[in-house]
Every structure is written in structure tokens, then in C-alpha cells.
Design a protein around this nucleic acid. Structure first.
Lengths: 184, 184
DNA sequence: TTGAAAACTGTCCGAGCGGTCAGGAACCAT
DNA sequence: ATGGTTCCTGACCGCTCGGACAGTTTTCAA
């Protein structure tokens, strides 16, 4: 009894990896289970053997970024509002650059994410991040500006290859600071 | 020979109206021709009799906003860069508020809009608007910030009913000015 | 070597999609 | 009344999708 069955993990990993690539280039909705299976070199039935439904594949693809987001939220939650905002901006920008490819996937799924129960806490953490980015003033306008910022960032991380990581980083950093830290 | 056959126009209008409502609440991709037909009180074949394909229905739904956008672009194109940017911001915000419901439709279609030939000039006008909003500096960063602004605005106009028109207007105006007119 | 457990697959299913088409119904100038 | 035009529809088509399942192959500890 090995701690983990390597064959199981290997296949799962391959499926997740190929699914990620396909989701990034074609979007979640435009990618079929058959596409994933073909890319992963197995049958569609195998994909469904390892993952109970297409949404479960998506959840596995999103897991690392989800964990990273949760860490940023946890890390910033303990700080006073002003410092938290400051840190959240830079950490969030880093996150966006690191997972830039996955963000278009998120965009594609957003309209239906409320109906997928496996993403409830991801949504909750997104909301929490918004509050932190808003600077904790509780002001309606600032909260909405923070949402605006996230939407802008999500939208801009699409079209991979058009921008280098450094350019994307500068853009997001500039935009977030202009939006969230306007000079008094 | 009447100038227009009223019955034709009445059916067309009903279809477009119901399609607009469905596109807004469920998105373009998640709305089927059958859904539209049922809501409009006719058969799917009738929808296809009046509009040659689903994309044509979308084009009809988007037409008023498209015209309004074209007018804003035309109006601002003649002005010097600084004034043009100033005017574009306020006019674009007004546009966004007026057609706030349709914007989520646009978001839904964006990933595939390049393949729909009927929207080529809409895309072109969107790009032109981006340039005007960027302030005509030609700077890569400012151009990207303008795109960022548009994406943020598009994202925020979703979830109708959560915000009044006035609130949305204030939000978009604030965000665009912070992004595009940062104090020197 | 063997046999149970794990991994995998071919095949089928029902549903929904956008779109076509021949023909029926409504309309209206004559 | 009537005949041609416009409007409308039921039935159908080809296709793709996510998913179910019984049965085969592979794996691996005993």
C-alpha cells in the first residue's frame, strides 16, 4: 500500500495539465471533455473516471491559483486596513501575472460560477479581497472602485502573448494604484 | 405599397425586445433561438425568417448602442486630443449608463466577436474610442490603461439592479478620471 | 503465478443546439 | 370572391455535448 498510487496521480496530472492549456487558449465553455481526453491521450470516459463532471476538472485546474488567492487574503486579513490595502495591491498584481493565463478562464466562467457549488469559497475570497483592496473605509464608492479595479485587471490579463510579464505587472500596478490610492 | 409593412416591423420589434431581455439576464450564449421565440410568442422558424441567423438577432439588439457609440467616436474625433479625451470620458460614461444592460451582453460575446463579420466596425470603433480615451499620447502604458478602464467599466455594468443609474454614473466617472487623468 | 482491485475504454443515450424547408394561414389590392 | 404576396409554422436534419455503464486491460501485493 503505497502512500499514493503513482499511476492515478500521473493520469490526473496529465488531464489537468492539458485541460488547463485548452481552457486557456479556447475558454472553458468551448472546450469539450473529448478535447481534453484527446489532448491527454486517453478517452473521455477516463476523464470522467477521474473527475466527476466537467466542473470538477475546472476546479482541479483552478486549485493552485485558488490556494494562492486564499493565502493572500489570509495574509492581508491580519493587518490594519492601510497596510493591508498596500500589501494586497502588490500581492494581487503578482498573483495576476503569475496566473495570467488562468484569468481568462475565470472570466469565461464568471457568468455561471454562482451555480457551481465547488467554487463558493473562491467567490467568497474574491469578495474578501475586494473589501481589503477598498481600504476598509466601508465607503460604497470605494468598494465599487475596487470591484472596478478587479474587473479591469481580469479583462486585461487576457490576450496572452501580447504583453510581457513585466509589462503586465507595470500596467496592473499603475492602474490599481491610480484607482485605489488617489492622491488626496 | 406602404412605406413599411407594419406587421413585419411589429414582429421584428417584439423579437428584438425579448431577445434583448434574455441576452441581458442570461447572456448571449446561454440564450437559444427557442428561448427567444417562446418569449416573443412565435416559433423558432419565425425568428429565423426575420433574422438570418442568431448573430443577426444580436446585431439588431446591439444596433442602437452601436449607433450611439459611433456618434460619440465621430463627435470626439474632430477635437484636439486633450479636449477629445475629456469629452470622451463623460460621453462614454453616459453611454455606459444608458446601455448598462447591454454591456453584459457585449462581455459575453467579446471572446468570439472577431469571428462575427457583422461586428467588425463595432470592434473598430471600440479601438478608436480606446485611443481617444488614452489621450492621444501614443504611450503604450496609457493605451493599456485605457483598455483597462474600458474592461473595468464593462465588468461593472453587470449585475443590474444592484446600483442606481446615478450610482453607476458616479462610479464610472470617478474610476475613469482616476485612471486616465491622474494628477501630474 | 494468481486473483482481486484499480484503471481504462467503446458504446450508447437523451438532450439541446442552430438551421432548413415545404406547406399552411393571413392579408390585401383588385 | 380571388389570387398573389407576405407571414408564419411543424417537422425534420446533422451535429455536439456531458454523462452512464458494462466489460476489458493493467497493476501489484500475496
Amino acid at each position: 500500500m503505497a502512500a499514493t498510487t503513482p499511476v492515478r496521480e500521473r493520469t490526473r496530472r496529465e488531464i489537468v495539465q492539458q485541460a488547463m492549456a485548452l481552457f486557456q487558449s479556447n475558454g472553458y465553455n468551448a472546450t469539450s471533455l473529448q478535447d481534453i481526453a484527446t489532448a491527454a491521450g486517453c478517452s473521455k470516459a477516463t476523464v470522467l473516471y477521474h473527475f466527476h463532471g466537467k466542473a470538477a476538472v475546472l476546479a482541479a485546474v483552478l486549485e493552485p491559483s485558488h490556494l494562492a488567492l486564499a493565502e493572500v487574503v489570509a495574509e492581508t486579513s491580519k493587518l490594519p486596513a492601510a497596510e493591508a490595502q498596500q500589501l494586497a495591491i502588490s500581492r494581487f498584481v503578482e498573483l495576476a501575472v503569475e496566473f495570467r493565463g488562468l484569468i481568462s478562464v475565470l472570466q469565461d466562467v464568471l457568468p455561471m460560477i454562482d451555480e457551481l457549488p465547488e467554487f463558493a469559497d473562491l467567490v467568497a475570497e474574491g469578495i474578501r479581497l475586494t473589501e481589503i483592496l477598498a481600504g476598509g473605509t466601508g465607503s460604497r464608492l470605494e468598494l465599487d472602485v475596487a470591484k472596478f479595479a478587479i474587473n479591469g485587471l481580469l479583462g486585461e490579463c487576457r490576450h496572452p502573448g501580447e504583453r510581457t510579464d513585466a509589462e503586465l505587472h507595470e500596467l496592473c500596478d499603475t492602474a490599481l494604484r491610480r484607482l485605489l490610492q488617489p492622491p488626496a
